[in-house]
């Protein structure tokens, strides 16, 4: 659509600006403020320069949390994206099955995040949880509270359970928007199932897939509530992801300076990666127009 140039449009955007300024800009300024100051309490602050940033960027605790968060996001993407595509490809296209699948699959997305944590906390327990009990009966030792690997697997499976449906729904929406003629033409051309996927479905899903990757990356990189409820960051610091560490530091220990510096570094990482995605996406959009 051809858009007209009109700076009065700013008036329409104004309410959003005011609101977002109140709920984002001012808090962010506070964070920046803390990150360059130090305090001994009593609301007396003095200039600390880049001290906190140096401390955060060189601390092994931050490195550990960063590596854990990044690996978690990568594992999550590696599982959820292919699984989501696979499920979406096999969803029914019409009939009574469609709303049933959609409603049931969307259900985990609408469960409060700490309840998700609670559900899995219970589900994985060896004494009262179905999963833990079954594994124990099968003779597999499994305890997410003591074994770091088990804790990791539990958190990953939980996230797969919680969020794969988002990928499924996105891909499904991409798939149903492909006109029937494409499938008919492919049939006439004698295309195999794989060819249909490779040359019709995948190219048409490209855009929604990018969005799925972007959303899943951002949200898994920011994950807090669910693993906090299940493992509390433990055992040891096995599941101490960036957000968990940050909240521990800021609200638990009240180390405002380092916490603020860490917040900013954290935010900048997400921003940089998201900017890359956004650029790729918009370039892709214009290339297709």
């Amino acid at each position: 659509m051809e858009k007209t140039y009109n700076n009065k449009a700013w008036f329409l955007v104004l309410p959003v600006l005011v609101l977002v300024a109140f709920s984002a800009v001012i808090p962010l300024m506070t964070v920046v403020n803390y990150s360059v100051q130090d305090t001994f309490g009593n609301n007396v602050f003095f200039w600390a320069g880049t001290e906190w940033f140096e401390q955060v960027l060189t601390s092994s605790r931050f490195h550990g949390a960063l590596i854990r968060s990044l690996s978690f996001s990568l594992v999550i993407l590696a599982i959820q994206i292919p699984l989501g595509i696979f499920v979406a490809l096999n969803m029914p296209r019409k009939g009574i099955g469609v709303p049933i699948c959609l409603v049931l699959m969307a259900l985990p997305l609408l469960i409060p995040w700490n309840v998700v944590g609670t559900i899995w906390q219970v589900f994985g327990r060896g004494d009262i949880g179905l999963l833990g009990y079954t594994l124990r009966t099968l003779g597999i030792s499994y305890n997410y509270a003591t074994d770091p690997w088990h804790a990791w697997i539990t958190v990953v499976v939980m996230d797969v359970w919680h969020w794969t449906s988002l990928v499924v729904l996105l891909c499904y929406a991409g798939l149903v928007s492909i006109p029937d003629a494409y499938y008919q033409a492919a049939k006439i051309d004698g295309a195999s199932r794989w060819s249909v996927f490779r040359y019709i479905q995948l190219p048409k899903m490209n855009r929604v897939l990018l969005i799925a990757v972007l959303l899943r990356f951002m949200d898994s990189f920011m994950i807090y509530t669910e693993p906090f409820v299940v493992t509390g960051g433990g055992p040891g610091s096995a599941t101490n992801f960036l957000s968990i560490d940050l909240v521990k530091m800021a609200i638990g220990q009240f180390d405002l300076g380092p916490a603020a510096a860490m917040s900013i570094v954290y935010f900048l990482i997400i921003l940089a990666l998201s900017w890359v995605f956004y650029t790729v996406m918009t370039n892709y959009d214009t290339a297709n127009r």
């Binding site: 006109p179 008919q184 033409a185 006439i188 040359y199 019709i200 190219p203």
Partner: peptide, 13 residues
């Protein structure tokens, strides 16, 4: 048989 549809169906990629 071969068929040509109302809207062109080509494999974009």
């Amino acid at each position: 048989i071969a068929q040509v549809f109302q809207f062109p169906v080509v494999y974009d990629t």
